[in-house]
Design a protein around this nucleic acid. Structure first.
Length: 210
DNA sequence: ACATTAATTGTGT
DNA sequence: ACACAATTAATGT
């Protein structure tokens, strides 16, 4: 755990802080598809991602999902930080996109460290900044891009975070993430296949080049 | 190995 | 968007 931590966070955190994290944090390893946070949950710990990827989803009143963004190694969940400050429920759902390793830190430590460690403050601010940017670009894509462009962007992003050119998803699941319908996705994927950009199979698809 | 069933994907209206 | 056809995977016998 110490090695993992140093590898990912060693350059941004002081050694002292690393040691504290090791003291109070608990190491967790979760499989693909594991639900880390559900909407309405009170958050008790703050995750520091070591490896793997986590997807962050929003859900509307009908239970329809929308993918907001991915967390990757070295990231943390800014929702947690917001929740801890005003003791609110989670507005989002977090699901492991791949097998992932992370360290959970008790929320009580957050305030303490914010006062104590400069590197921690920077980390928190940077995370906020990055998440906000991610969110803005997602918003752009929903507001201004057509569905075919969103789909291509989605595939690229997914291939990037999973480090795999094979997307292990059904058309239906992709449709959920993009808040679209299965038929639309199937038709668009077919077009991409005809253009030689991807290869379609059942339950998965390969990216040739985008 | 074959038949049955369920789930996923393709297509026309 | 809907209905249905076609295809493929999963399961039981």
């Amino acid at each position: 755990m110490i090695q993992d931590l140093k590898e990912q966070y060693g350059t941004i955190f002081e050694n002292e802080l690393i040691n504290e994290i090791v003291q109070v944090g608990t190491f967790k390893e979760v499989p693909e598809g594991f639900k880390l946070i559900e909407i309405g949950d009170y958050l008790r710990g703050m995750p520091l991602l070591i490896s793997g990827a986590i997807k962050i989803l929003r859900e509307d009143e009908d239970g329809d999902e929308l993918l907001l963004y991915y967390l990757e190694k070295g990231d943390t969940c800014s929702m947690t930080m917001a929740c801890c400050i005003n003791d609110a429920k989670s507005e989002i759902r977090a699901i492991a996109e791949t097998n992932a390793k992370l360290i959970m830190v008790p929320i009580q430590k957050m305030e303490e460290w914010t006062a104590k460690y400069k590197s921690w403050r920077n980390f928190v601010f940077n995370s906020y900044h990055e998440r906000l940017n991610e969110l803005l670009s997602t918003l752009d894509s929903i507001a201004f891009q057509k569905m075919d462009e969103r789909l291509v962007g989605y595939l690229k992003e997914k291939a990037r975070v999973t480090k795999d050119d094979i997307i292990h998803n059904t058309h239906q699941e992709i449709a959920y993430d993009l808040h679209s319908s299965r038929v639309v996705i199937s038709r668009l994927l077919k077009k991409l296949e005809e253009m030689g950009k991807i290869k379609l199979h059942r339950n998965y698809l390969e990216i040739i080049q985008l």
